[in-house]
Design a protein around this nucleic acid. Structure first.
Length: 431
RNA sequence: GGUAGGGUGGGUGAGAGGCUGAAACCGACAGUCUUGAAAACUGUUAUGUCCGAAAGGGCAUCGCGAGUUCGAAUCUCGCCCCUACCGCCA
């Protein structure tokens, strides 16, 4: 949610920016609703003041008939006004929650993801002396991917992952974990990218996979609900990304400035309904209802938020380079960055089996948009309290694994293991 | 899941219908003293929100929600969570 004071002072800007992000909002209506809510509140507060004063008169003595009579009147009026207030407040909240975050100055303007801007392309696209297979042809031949049985057991968009593929996935995750918890490597990444951020390591987290409605909504990641799995009979949802349960972890808390930035690397199986993507990516394992992912999350003071975001992208690039995968960095345009985002970067990997780039990573910078409703704050050195800035980003998921299969395949269907993963694969070179 | 006891500020913990946003102590911060530090003493020390240029003032918050009452941290009901024991379980 945006700050209502900011909206008030920058109504035209907010209106314009919301439209550029593709959201239909009426800022003047929001402000009107805020005014209505406020004027009712002021009436209530002056009545409450009278009630409090009346009640203070009875501190040593019994209240007079007069006081009780007036008190009853006040009670009735307050009850009445509170009903109108509740309605006015709800209307205001519904309206203000629709307004997306302001985007960062350097975000390209665009009406759809087609207008995202490729910032750079890194790594050589491999040339094959044979026709490269896609990951499901490779995986099924090796009995690493079994979607037929998964469909029998759980339905479409599920898969059994098996054998060396599983070992490779664990190798990948262990590799990422080792990088993110090694301060020396983080320092190297910071230096190489000329960043001004703390080199504090990431704290590994295995979070809950379920999240309450209230927390999910405060994160502004609950919508669209058709995309989420609801737990029947409970006020719980299956999280769609570890970010959802990591970001809400410190809701209602006030950090000490000295404890920031606070960085987490969380591993979680994530769940998505993939509503509205019928028929898309039905083959292979690029778009399943559940997938494993290692996610970065950080909480920082406002002036460090952007550097933190750039640091996350630098980490993503470091991981992709280490895995020797060809990729490109994409700046998402206004229409594609997402409602709570101020800025968003995607990394797409080259998939020879599909002959195109596919998204493997996202990095999101939310400024204080999420923190406002989460009530995650920091006590600064001068004792003032303010909202923190949140960042999240993919570290590694199963999609880079697909890329390893397709990019590192040999004619006989075996896969060359990236050098950095071999220590985690009993030093084997091929699987 | 059952039974019992609990949830009050950064911490411990008092308060059991009105003078209580809340005692006391600890911690933290600032000051006095000191060459410096400690000790001692003095002061400050929740969050949100509204009005105001500011000074200041109002309102709300004692796990959450509803209710009783002229008046609720305090009484009633529902929910959540904690602790202990029992049951079940990786």
């Amino acid at each position: 949610m945006l700050d209502i004071k900011f909206i008030k002072e920058n109504a035209d800007l907010v209106q314009k920016v919301s439209e550029e992000k593709g959201y239909k909002v009426d800022v003047s209506e929001t402000l009107k609703l805020y005014g209505e809510q406020n004027s009712i509140l002021q009436k209530i507060e002056s009545l409450r003041k009278e009630r409090n004063e009346l009640s203070a008169l009875s501190k040593n003595s019994k209240p007079t008939e007069e006081h009780i009579k007036r008190g009853k009147e006040i009670k009735l009026e307050i009850t009445h006004l509170e009903e109108s207030f509740k309605k006015a407040e709800d209307d205001f909240l519904v309206s203000v929650k629709k307004i997306p975050n302001i985007y960062s100055e350097d975000v390209p303007k665009g009406k759809s993801e087609n207008e995202n801007v490729v910032v750079k392309t890194v790594g050589e696209i491999p040339k094959f002396k044979f026709t490269p297979k896609n990951h499901w042809q490779l995986g099924e031949a090796k009995h690493w991917i079994d979607k037929e049985r998964a469909t029998k057991v759980a339905g479409a968009r599920f898969a059994y992952l098996m054998g060396d593929f599983v070992r490779l996935e664990w190798a990948l995750m262990r590799f990422a974990m080792d990088i993110l918890t090694d301060e020396k490597i983080l320092k190297k990444i910071i230096k190489a990218n000329n960043l001004k951020v703390s080199s504090k390591v990431f704290i590994p987290v295995l979070p809950p996979y379920m999240i309450k409605t209230e927390q999910y909504d405060a994160m502004d990641r609950l919508e669209p609900r058709e995309e989420r799995y609801k737990i029947e009979g409970e006020d719980l949802w299956l999280q769609g990304s570890a970010e959802h349960v990591l970001g809400s972890m410190h809701s209602e808390e006030i950090f000490n400035e000295a404890d920031l930035p606070l960085r987490y690397v969380g591993f979680a199986t994530s769940f998505r309904k993939e509503a509205g993507s019928y028929g898309k990516d039905m083959e292979g394992i690029i778009r399943l209802h559940q997938f494993n992912k290692m996610e970065l999350e950080s909480f920082s003071v406002k002036e460090n938020g952007m550097q933190e975001h750039l640091f996350f992208v630098a980490i993503q690039e470091y991981l992709m380079k280490a895995l020797e995968l060809p990729y490109r960095v994409v700046m998402k345009c206004t229409a594609d960055i997402g409602k709570p985002n101020a800025r968003g970067i995607d990394i797409d990997v080259w998939l020879p089996g599909q002959n195109k780039y596919r998204e493997t990573h996202t990095a999101d910078y939310m400024t204080d948009y999420q923190a406002r409703r989460l009530k995650t704050r920091v006590r600064r050195a001068d004792n003032s309290v303010e909202l923190i800035h949140t960042n999240d980003a993919t570290a590694l998921s199963e999609r880079p694994l697909i890329a390893i299969l397709e990019n590192n395949q040999r004619e006989d269907g075996t896969i060359e293991i990236p050098k950095v993963l071999r220590p985690y694969m009993l030093k084997k070179k091929f699987i």
